[in-house]
């Protein structure tokens, strides 16, 4: 490294030291806590966690909800990102504002707004009943489905924006070249647009999954204590049970899942990107 590059490296120092003190150090200490019993190294907390059927069901639910949230967000985001990538002028601004503005409304406000739609005598049930689709109101609030819908709503921009960014960069001549070579719109999509947008899909999915697996406010507000997730369990261990070791263990499990997803997706993105 040249002297100049070293000096430029110094610019990263404030950010790095901030992260080290505020993020890495406490997290490391927390991790240590989950591996110790009375100052001795031990995996007992983990054995305890995985032996407990309730803990396992919470772990499984957390992963399932995060996966389904990611899938739902992807299904909604992909066509949106295509439309945005092709939008021009005022329409592009409308799309971008529509994506970013909801992020400024707090999750709590959103969650209470959803209850108007989803509650037993809410708007959605009124519509379903007036259309004769159901006779009695369907229970929607406090269900996993409502949680997934709500989470997908909150995390949608994190899925749309990376896909949009990749599609926007794509040379618009590529689909045209494909068409002139005899490729139908469907063939074009699966052989040109989709493969070229995969790095965006991977990035967006990694963002959304990481956020969804560690979300706390959204499940607390939508499903409450009925269906716990790992984050809620962590909070309960620290706040109510005062079981720091259990809290640290669950946090560490969450962290491992998140890190695997980030590493896995970076590897996937690099592999997909290397060909381009």
């Amino acid at each position: 490294m040249t002297l100049r590059a070293e000096r430029i490296g110094l610019l990263a120092l404030p950010g790095l030291s901030f992260l080290a003190i505020v993020y890495a150090l406490p997290l490391f200490m927390l991790l240590l806590k989950s591996l110790q019993i009375d100052g001795q190294f031990s995996l007992a907390e983990y054995q305890l966690f995985f032996a407990d059927e309730f803990s396992r069901s919470v772990l499984w639910r957390t992963i399932r909800v995060a996966l389904l949230t990611t899938l739902l967000a992807l299904a909604i985001a992909y066509p949106t990102a295509i439309a945005m990538a092709r939008a021009k002028g005022i329409w592009l601004s409308v799309f971008l504002v529509a994506m970013v503005l909801p992020m400024s409304v707090g999750v709590i406000v959103k969650a209470f707004a959803w209850t108007i739609i989803f509650r037993t005598r809410g708007v959605l049930n009124d519509v379903l009943m007036s259309l004769g689709i159901t006779d009695a109101p369907v229970r929607m609030l406090f269900t996993e489905t409502a949680l997934i819908i709500g989470a997908a709503n909150v995390f949608l921009p994190f899925m749309v924006l990376p896909i949009y960014a990749v599609l926007r960069q794509m040379d618009s001549r590529l689909p045209e070249a494909a068409a002139s070579l005899g490729a139908t719109p469907v063939f074009r999509f699966f052989n040109v647009t989709l493969p070229l947008s995969l790095p965006g899909v991977v990035a967006g999915s990694a963002f959304t999954f990481s956020l969804a697996i560690s979300m706390y406010v959204i499940p607390s507000l939508i499903v409450g204590e009925r269906q716990q997730t790992l984050s809620m369990l962590t909070a309960r261990s620290f706040l109510y049970l005062r079981d720091e070791a259990l809290g640290a263990t669950i946090s560490s499990i969450l962290l491992v899942i998140a890190i695997s997803v980030v590493l896995g997706s970076s590897w996937l993105a690099a592999r997909l990107g290397a060909r381009q």
Binding site: D171, R173, L174, E176, A177, A178, A179, S180, L181, G182, A183, T184, P185, R188, N191, V192, P195, L196, L272, R275, Q276
Partner: peptide, 29 residues
């Protein structure tokens, strides 16, 4: 539509598919 005309286009930027190899590009049509 373009894909039914059998009219090939060579673009200024060549518009080669960056995710495909040389042979895969040529085989595309």
């Amino acid at each position: 539509p373009a894909h039914k005309r059998n009219v090939s286009v060579v673009f200024q930027s060549y518009a080669l598919f960056p995710h495909l190899s040389v042979a895969e590009n040529v085989a595309f049509g």
